[in-house]
């Protein structure tokens, strides 16, 4: 464990807690893409298959349980909660996320480190996580209004992956044989998807104006 990875995990944890807090307190999911949340639940479900078979550390197991619990409860809130579901913008959240899942499955079958079920599912979760934010970013472009909790949520999500890139660089230089192109490339693609959001987020914060994404 290094400071970059710990900071990344904490930022990631904080992003899901911010989102849960927003939905739970104001009983609204306005501006939140259910598709992105479903994709994240799928990412965690396919990545943490080893939660009961490979014990790595208490920290690792606790964080996996928190991420699984929070992502599925966010999906439950938006789908089932009688008040929250009314604020879900079904017409705007139209990104066909099935078009993301299939290519990730195919890519995971083609490019992986080991052709086993667990490894292919793990690789699938990496590819899917890289693109899972797309429905949310498309929704933001459409609705154009970004309440600051949603903006903070997306900013924290992007920051977590950026910190993980620093973690990989650190581990590359401190641990021999630590070379994982699949993890690094998908993590880099994911971070680049946030780049333009970061740009507008930073400028709106600097000029202290409401965050507007260009149409």
């Amino acid at each position: 464990m290094n400071i970059f990875r710990l900071a990344g995990d904490m930022t990631h944890l904080f992003s899901v807690l911010v989102l849960l807090l927003k939905i739970h307190t104001i009983k609204s999911c306005a501006g939140i893409s259910l598709k992105t949340q479903e994709l994240y639940a799928l990412v965690f479900a396919t990545r943490y298959l080893d939660i009961f078979t490979d014990y790595i550390s208490l920290y690792n197991t606790c964080m996996k349980l928190i991420f699984l619990g929070s992502s599925f409860s966010i999906v439950w809130y938006i789908r089932r909660h009688k008040i929250v579901r009314r604020s879900y913008d079904k017409e705007q959240d139209t990104f066909r996320h099935h078009f993301l899942i299939l290519p990730c499955i195919i890519l995971a079958l083609l490019i992986n480190e080991k052709f086993t079920v667990k490894e292919v599912m793990w690789t699938f979760s990496l590819y899917l996580e890289a693109v899972a934010i797309l429905p949310q970013l498309v929704l933001l472009q459409r609705t154009r209004n970004i309440d600051n909790l949603t903006g903070q949520y997306i900013f924290l999500l992007g920051a977590y992956r950026s910190l993980y890139i620093l973690n990989w660089i650190y581990r590359y230089f401190t641990e021999q044989h630590y070379v994982h192109w699949i993890t690094w490339i998908s993590g880099l693609v994911q971070t680049l998807l946030y780049a333009d959001f970061f740009y507008y987020y930073f400028h709106s914060w600097k000029n202290n104006e409401k965050l507007q994404l260009p149409a």
Partner: peptide, 10 residues
Amino acid sequence: AQDQSTKDEL
């Protein structure tokens, strides 16, 4: 071997 992989990451 475990810590050489990224499986110890979340």
